[in-house]
Design a protein around this nucleic acid. Structure first.
Length: 627
DNA sequence: AAAAAAT
């Protein structure tokens, strides 16, 4: 256990710096810092602090026994930083003034097919020699300890290596380029299930190779199935074969960037569409052909209504952050897309739902989209949030700002190279985000913000500025809570706690990624009473120190948790709701000990899929924290 | 009550 939060931050920073620099050595291309031209108001007309010299590596990553996940996660992290590099290259040419250069620089004039998403130094065969070096020290045996649960009819057995899955030559080359040596647990289980043509509901932490888990089978399947003759209903209508939906624009962009790497030189075309950006460019992309369409719901509905997209040929449907996609705000839109368009019915298309959390009410809704599906839950190495130190502090509303500054100030003093660790600060409201960003900026803390009232340009700029370290503090609403893979976030601060414990789980999952440690601090007060019990339970389950005062509030909290019922039942959705009859309260220990991997095939007999729902109460405590 | 997502 760490003795103070400052130590934790310092340690998290040290690890981040350490691994960042080794990435650079390995890839040899990201050394140049990504510079953003965004200057926070309080820094304008000042000298930019000079870029630090090569940071002295302060201590090797500790607790590498957990790096089993780091192996996989590391792959995607490396991918991420290279992607950043590619982008910054694009910007480098044109400067930062253009709002839409994200698309513009790298995507104009149909060159994307030839454009190498891995960077110019790419060569699959050359990369191979890096693979062994880069993964030295990763304990792949740690994979074996990850609890896995599957249920459903005739679950296909997992695979141990990519070589044992016949994904095709081109895809294999891309897997090498991504430096994925061994499939992650979710990939080992989900890919065979998906290749067998089965529907799937999967719980797995983000950063665990989830995107690849659904992209590989889709790409492989499209290559196998060939490119069928599309109907010629209208010249302007396009007929994608696969649809991937996600709840935020940034997440859609991230999925698209990854999918494009996986599809490189396969002839499979990936296009992303989302709102807030001019539609013209997206239409032009579509006109060039699309096999896999990545989309946010609103823009897709728009395109469907314009008859520019038809879902008639969809063979694969994937929902990322599926529980979010099916909650109150999104459900009607998703239902419209899935059930009231020309999309083939469930059982004809193949449907895959992925999320880190999966409350049972949402599982029930989701089962409408699935046919005789397999439920898969993959946990972390060891207990839940081992890599994330969670702290909760009682801070009155009026004291939050000064308390935040105390934290940030101490962090600054502990900075490994005079630079602040990346800190993500979550607040409840968009106005609150603006106000806090302004406050921090006025007080000498370079901050930016991301929320739904900012323009898409501003959102993307904020994210880049944060990732690059230019503004190492990002104030965010829940728009940034899910799925986003931001390397090197050392500290997540819940300035305002969410009302839903699942949101808390997603938020803190922005740190502690890629096998690194992370710190999560929550400001708790009278306003967050409804979260007292679920938060105390969660922290307890993940072996965190729970303050006495929180335990007292938790025991005082009304039984049933009021409006948190949604998540009160199966907090981490770690169990198939179809099994609720096998009531399993206090099952965390069972879970870890009992349903072990190695095929993890419980062969729960599901006679006929979603209709025989079991709405039994309570139960279903999964292990802690799926991301 | 808030956030996200089309214009």
């Amino acid at each position: 256990m760490r003795t103070s939060w400052a130590d934790s931050v310092a340690s998290a920073e040290a690890e981040n710096v350490g691994s960042a620099s080794s990435d650079n050595n390995g890839v040899g291309s990201t050394a140049r810092p990504t510079k953003s031209t965004y200057i926070p108001p309080h820094l304008r007309n000042r000298h930019q602090s000079s870029e630090p010299a090569a940071p002295s590596l302060s201590g090797p990553p500790s607790s590498n026994d957990r790096l089993g996940f780091g192996g996989s996660a590391s792959g995607s992290r490396i991918g991420g930083s290279r992607q950043d590099h590619g982008r910054s290259g694009g910007y480098g040419g044109g400067g930062r003034s253009g709002g839409w250069n994200n698309r513009g620089a790298g995507w104009d004039r149909g060159r994307d097919e030839r454009l190498n998403p891995f960077g110019n130094d790419d060569d699959a065969s050359v990369q191979e020699e890096f693979v062994e070096q880069e993964n030295t020290g990763i304990n792949f045996d740690a994979y074996e300890d990850i609890p896995v649960e599957t249920s459903g009819d005739n679950v296909p057995p997992p695979v141990e290596t990519f070589a044992k899955i016949d994904l095709g030559k081109e895809l294999n080359a891309n897997i090498r380029r991504c430096k994925y040596v061994k499939p992650t647990p979710v990939q080992r289980h989900a890919i065979p299930i998906s290749l067998a043509g089965r529907d799937l509901m999967a719980c797995a932490q983000t950063g665990s190779g989830k995107t690849a888990a659904f992209c590989f089978p889709i790409i492989s399947g499209i290559m196998r199935g060939g490119h069928p003759q599309r109907p010629s209903r209208g010249l302007r209508t396009v007929y994608p074969l696969a649809l991937i939906l996600s709840p935020t624009r940034e997440l859609s962009m991230q999925i698209h960037d990854e999918a494009r790497k996986f599809a490189y030189q396969t002839g499979v075309k990936v296009v992303v569409v989302y709102g807030g950006a001019p539609i013209g460019q997206q239409l032009r992309e579509l006109d060039r052909g699309v096999d896999i369409l990545v989309a946010t719901p609103g823009r897709l509905v728009d395109l469907l209504e314009r008859a520019r997209v038809s879902l008639q040929m969809i063979r694969y449907l994937a929902l990322d952050e599926a529980d979010r996609m099916l909650d109150m705000g999104f459900e009607p839109q998703i239902r419209k897309i899935v059930e009231q368009t020309d999309m083939p019915a469930r059982g004809i298309r193949q449907t895959m739902l992925f999320s880190a959390t999966f409350p049972k009410e949402i599982q029930r809704l989701a089962s409408d989209f699935l046919s005789n599906y397999i439920f898969l839950a993959v946990g972390r190495v060891g207990s839940s949030t081992d890599l994330i130190v969670q702290r909760v502090e009682f801070v009155h509303e009026a004291d939050k700002r000064s308390h935040l500054m105390d934290l940030l100030h101490a962090q600054k003093a502990n900075g490994v190279h005079g630079k602040q660790a990346l800190t993500l600060v979550f607040v409840e409201t968009k106005k609150g985000a603006d106000a806090l960003e302004h406050f921090l900026s006025m007080n000498g803390f370079p901050a930016t913000s991301i929320h739904g009232d900012r323009t898409q340009q501003e959102r993307e700029l904020a994210l880049r500025s944060f990732k690059s370290g230019n503004t190492p503090i990002l104030v965010a609403t829940d728009v940034a809570a899910r799925g986003l893979d931001i390397p090197h976030v050392a500290h997540v601060i819940n300035f305002d706690l969410p009302n839903d414990i699942d949101d808390y789980v997603h938020r803190i999952g922005r740190t502690g990624r890629a096998g690194k440690t992370g710190l999560a601090t929550a400001f708790f007060n009278e306003g967050s009473m409804s979260l007292a019990r679920p938060l105390a339970d969660l922290m307890q389950e993940s072996n965190q120190e729970v303050p006495d005062w929180l335990v007292r509030y938790a025991s005082r909290a009304a039984y049933g948790g009021g409006r948190n019922r949604r998540s009160g039942g199966g907090r981490f959705g770690g169990r198939d709701f179809r099994r609720e009859s096998s009531f399993n309260r206090g099952g965390a220990a069972d879970y870890h000990g009992g349903n072990n991997n190695h095929g993890g095939n419980n062969n729960y007999h599901n006679s006929g899929g979603p209709s025989n729902n079991n709405s039994g109460g309570g139960g279903g405590y999964g292990p802690s924290a799926w991301d």
